[in-house]
């Protein structure tokens, strides 16, 4: 009776621990089907970021499944009632070296493989093209609890009576390297566009240049990703990516509408 109880306990423990890698991997496999996976990529650098994620995902999955299965096997195998004593060992120097060196090499590989993508997004701003850090397309203002975009007037000034200010809707051209300045009026906010794989905090007192190149016309969510107060959840925006020529028409129409009288 006691033996049966012990066996059941062993099996239960083993199954519980086994469920971790099995269900863990299964949910990741099914995640896409359940709509719990990355949204589509709509920026030029999005694929690079996702690929790095997948590189690490493979590494992590192999380690995860390997270590968890070892744990499961050890727990099942060595929880058997056994009157003999355990293996008497205090460790193995070579093994320690091996399992320090392998992660070290992997981590150095990970670190170096990330640097280029990071520089692409955050450091290497376009130097040519219609929009540069000195001459950005727009300024995006975050404030409690609104996103506002400001397009310069026809002379390129961001101050003055003829600038265009739009709440919520941020319209940008497709297939163009867009640079904008990110500012905050009050507290910290964060400019997060999931489909662009782009996130940058807006800090009061700082003007942070940000760039992206949208590859697909469409409407996408802009979400505030830094706690900005009680209305944080409602601080939404929308990115409208228009084909290049449509964008020019749109901007011209917007400038003209400034002087409409209806």
């Amino acid at each position: 009776m006691a033996g049966l109880k012990h066996f059941l306990l062993r099996v239960l423990t083993t199954l519980l621990l086994l469920a971790v890698p099995v269900l863990g991997v299964w949910t990741f496999v099914k995640a896409e089907e359940w709509g719990l996976w990355f949204p589509p990529i709509v920026s030029s650098y999005g694929a690079g970021i996702d690929n790095l994620f997948y590189v690490i995902l493979w590494m992590v999955t192999v380690t995860f499944v390997g270590t968890e299965l070892l744990l499961v096997w050890f727990v099942f195998r060595y929880s058997k009632r056994d009157p003999t004593r355990a293996v008497y060992t205090h460790g193995n120097h070579t093994l320690e070296l091996v399992w320090t060196a392998i992660p070290a090499l992997l981590m150095i590989f990970v670190a170096f493989s990330q640097m280029e993508a990071w520089s692409d997004v955050k450091l290497n701003f376009p130097e040519e093209g219609p929009y540069t850090v000195e001459k950005p397309l727009m300024e995006v203002y975050a404030s409690q609890f609104d996103w506002r975009v400001r397009y310069p007037d026809a002379q390129g000034n961001f101050q003055g009576a003829d600038v265009i200010e739009v709440p919520y809707d941020i319209t940008v051209p497709a297939d163009t390297k867009v640079v904008f300045r990110l500012k905050s009026r009050d507290v910290l906010h964060s400019f997060f566009v999931p489909v662009f794989r782009l996130k940058q905090d807006a800090v009061p007192g700082m003007e942070i240049p940000v760039w992206f190149e949208a590859t697909q016309p469409g409407d996408y969510d802009l979400i505030c990703a830094e706690l900005c107060g009680w209305g944080h959840y409602k601080m939404a925006g929308r990115i409208h990516v228009l084909p290049k020529d449509e964008f020019d028409t749109w901007l011209a129409a917007k400038r003209a509408a400034l002087y409409a009288t209806e």
Partner: peptide, 15 residues
């Protein structure tokens, strides 16, 4: 509702 009232807590509800 769609424009919000800038510089107040009234946001735009265009979402």
């Amino acid at each position: 509702l769609t424009e919000g009232i800038y510089t107040t807590a009234m946001p735009s509800f265009r979402r």
